[in-house]
Write a protein that binds this DNA or RNA. Sequence first.
DNA 1: GCATGATCATGC
DNA 2: GCATGATCATGC
Length: 477
Amino acid sequence: MFKYYYDDTNPKSIELYAKNLIGKTFNEVINIYSEYIFETSNENTKHKGNLGDLIEKHFFHYSPNSNPNADFKEAGVELKVTPYKQNKNGSFSAKERLVLTMINYNDIVKENFYNSHLWAKCSLILLVYYLYNKDTKNKLDYRIDYAKLFSPPEKDLEIIKQDFYTIINKIKSGQAHTLSESDTNYLGAVTKAANSTKLTSQPFSDKLAKPRAFSFKTSYMTYVLNNYIIPNKDTYIKNESIISCSKDLKNKTFNQIVIDKLSKFIGKSKNDLIKEFKLDDAKNNKAILNLISLRMLGLKSNSAEEFIKANIKIKALRINRKNKIVESMSLPAFKFKDLINEDWETSNVFKYFDEQKFLFVVFKEDSNGNYIFSSCKFWNMPYEDLNIIVKDGWSKIQNTLKSGVILKKGKFVSNNFPKKSDNPIIHIRPHAQKSAYIFKDGTSYGNINRDANELPDGQWMTTQSFWLNNSYILDQL
DNA sequence: GCATGATCATGC
DNA sequence: GCATGATCATGC
């Protein structure tokens, strides 16, 4: 038998043994390595930790546990079995965040980073990646492709520590109930409960909070996957970094470093900055303010390592002379048939704002019509805005889909979806290259397949997306 | 003047 | 060619 063909006090030995998993499906692993008779009925297929438990039990031959120490205590190694996926364009992403350990609101405020359970769970991780495929019916047929030890690099660790204290400080100020994953950069506080109604107490407020766990964000894990796990990729490109050295993070937070870099340029006009950075201001370059923002940060491209890991989008905003933000801000387009079947907590809109951070770079129009760089700020949607106001707007849009969309032909096609004025934060609007419709009477126009998608009742409508109201964005600055 | 519907521009 | 970010422009 294969029992104990590894030294559980030695990380390298555990990793070496784990390499036996590579190229095998979970079923094959069980057939080859299990010393038990495997009973499928015992495996609750809904339990997410399931595949990890399976590897612990049938491959490493120890009992699954949920204690706060690392799985291989002597070696200080934590085992994580986690999915990745292939995107439409061929690239690979982590499928989900990596949950590390529950946050005990009452205890965590007494801990520091290095004596926390979190550190025991994330200092050295054996990452076992399997390829997720939505067409594979039986999870046991997923194939394991990588098994590798991972420790967060020094620079990442500094940011993770900052995230840890951001979360702790929010708990200390009695705000555990407004925690959100997008509050932080690499380490997030993700909701973790059997159902959304379960709540728990917090030390500095009477308000009950959702139970949460520390996790590495999906965006962070995608970077880890592509840069530390998948070996020797042909396409490997070293991303630019904003932070050159981990020492820089000892005295200042990542966010503060970014703000300081940008702030040096406050007061300069768009035209000043175009000259300064020798940019080509082609007449209709819609990305010029974004490009300027990148250059102010010392970046050549829109792919800074830290922004990818933290899921941060740079948004250049224009405030005109009347003190209005010129445009609302679009989200990725959605399909009606997806939206109508969604629940709020797993909806794309919720996920987007729960996970997305923004760096707003604000340009204000002066009396001569010049846009002047005036301020910048990191932003993520506050918990209650998302879970009360946006949720309400989202539900009403979903209800219109359920009760039936009425399209009215004219020069423009109008509809009965809730309007911008019906919700303080979000509205929906067309988002396609051209408009395209199929009406109830069978008439149609436009490139249906490219620009429209089907409504529940068989009509087709120009593809829409959610937008953040410009008035709301202004309030957030 | 602004909301709403529509479309342009860029990067992959 | 598509997805997404950014902006235009008509009609109320």
